[in-house]
């Protein structure tokens, strides 16, 4: 861990001001916001991230961690802790996919620490990224190559990959947000803006070190989840080698608007198999207007993984991903709306 100076932010504006002047963004930004710290401090200890200054935004928790549920939907403050949201009765009852994706992530302790905003921005678990003794990692060191291609890549992505990076996006909650058509509220040096959550993350392409569309100094202040017909008939299915405390091998967030067994509308986002929280639009299209049978679910899953590219050890992932999606869809269809 490199030396850094530590400051506490006492209002949003000064936090943004503190971080807005820097040229380099994201991984290499010398000024980083510190919220739960569960990802940032870990990466600093192993020398992957080397900020010179930490701006502790936890003092803003009072204003940035509100949970508001009303007839229009749900608004979750960016600094709300994962556990608080996961066990919020309204979230559990009316937005099950959100609650489940949080409860199935990390551990109780980490969920008590980690903020929602930090969670959706969490970095990949790719071992080649996380260990600086590996020379080749385009995400860590642009232009250095990708050791995971041709290496140990069982847990790596099959969707959204590029010749430069196949690192998996490891989170769960962002998929749940995408499945509910959520938007993210961002405040930055230029004021406030809102974008759909599925526009927050960037495909690796030839710039895998740039993982999202946030500019310097921008802070995620809240997530807005509309209360739509599919919200209650939603679930998060996470498949992994052990029962708990593991990142997904494959996962699916699904939200279904069903009428008499026919899909009126649907949202699907996949985890554990893609470089970003992956909205499976092609699968959604297959399902719309169709009765939700096993065959249709299977066709949708085929469509979702049609663009998959595998790399050896993860050759099994398209099949597992398809099975996961089929299971999730059929389970969701059984839920009460």
């Amino acid at each position: 861990m490199r030396p850094f100076s530590y400051d506490r932010a006492h209002d949003l504006a000064s936090a943004i001001r503190a971080a807005s002047a820097q040229v380099e963004v994201q991984n290499r930004a010398p000024i980083q916001f510190l919220a739960g710290g569960t990802n940032l401090l870990d990466l600093m200890k192993i020398d992957v991230m080397r900020p010179e200054r930490l701006v502790d935004i936890n003092p803003l928790e009072d204003s940035l961690s509100e949970i508001v549920a009303d007839g229009d939907g749900l608004r979750l403050g960016g600094l709300a802790r994962m556990s608080t949201v996961a066990h919020h009765p309204d979230v559990e009852k009316n937005y099950p996919v959100l609650s489940q994706s949080l409860k199935l992530a990390a551990s109780a302790q980490l969920r008590n620490m980690a903020s929602l905003a930090g969670n959706v921005l969490q970095r990949t678990r790719c071992s080649y990224f996380r260990d600086v003794s590996w020379g080749a990692c385009n995400k860590r060191e642009p232009g250095s190559g990708c050791a995971a291609i041709g290496g140990v890549n069982r847990k790596h992505a099959v969707l959204g990959t590029s010749p430069h990076c196949i690192a998996t996006y490891p989170g769960d909650f962002a998929q749940a947000l995408i499945a509910l058509d959520a938007t993210v509220e961002i405040t930055g040096p230029k004021g406030e803006r809102r974008i759909p959550v599925h526009e927050l993350h960037r495909l690796p392409g030839d710039t895998p070190h740039i993982e999202n569309t946030l500019a310097a100094g921008e802070i995620i202040t809240a997530f807005q989840i509309p209360r739509k017909a599919w919200a209650k008939r939603s679930l998060y299915l996470k498949v992994r080698d052990r029962e708990s405390y593991e990142f997904a091998v494959a996962s699916a967030a699904v939200a279904l608007d069903l009428a008499d067994g026919v899909v009126r509308d649907v949202r699907i986002a996949l985890g554990g198999v893609a470089t970003i929280p992956w909205r499976a639009v092609a699968a959604e299209e297959v399902l719309k207007g169709k009765p939700l049978t096993e065959d249709i679910a299977r066709s949708a899953a085929e469509a979702a993984f049609e663009p998959a590219r595998t790399h050896g050890e993860n050759d099994f992932k398209p099949e597992l991903g398809r099975n996961t999606l089929v299971r999730a869809l059929l389970d969701a269809a059984k839920l009460e709306a």
């Binding site: 678990r125 071992s127 847990k155 052990r242 029962e243 708990s244 405390y245 593991e246």
Partner: peptide, 10 residues
């Protein structure tokens, strides 16, 4: 996190 040993839930 990557070398798996059982957790309580297993």
């Amino acid at each position: 996190a990557e070398y798996l040993i059982p957790v309580c839930a297993d």
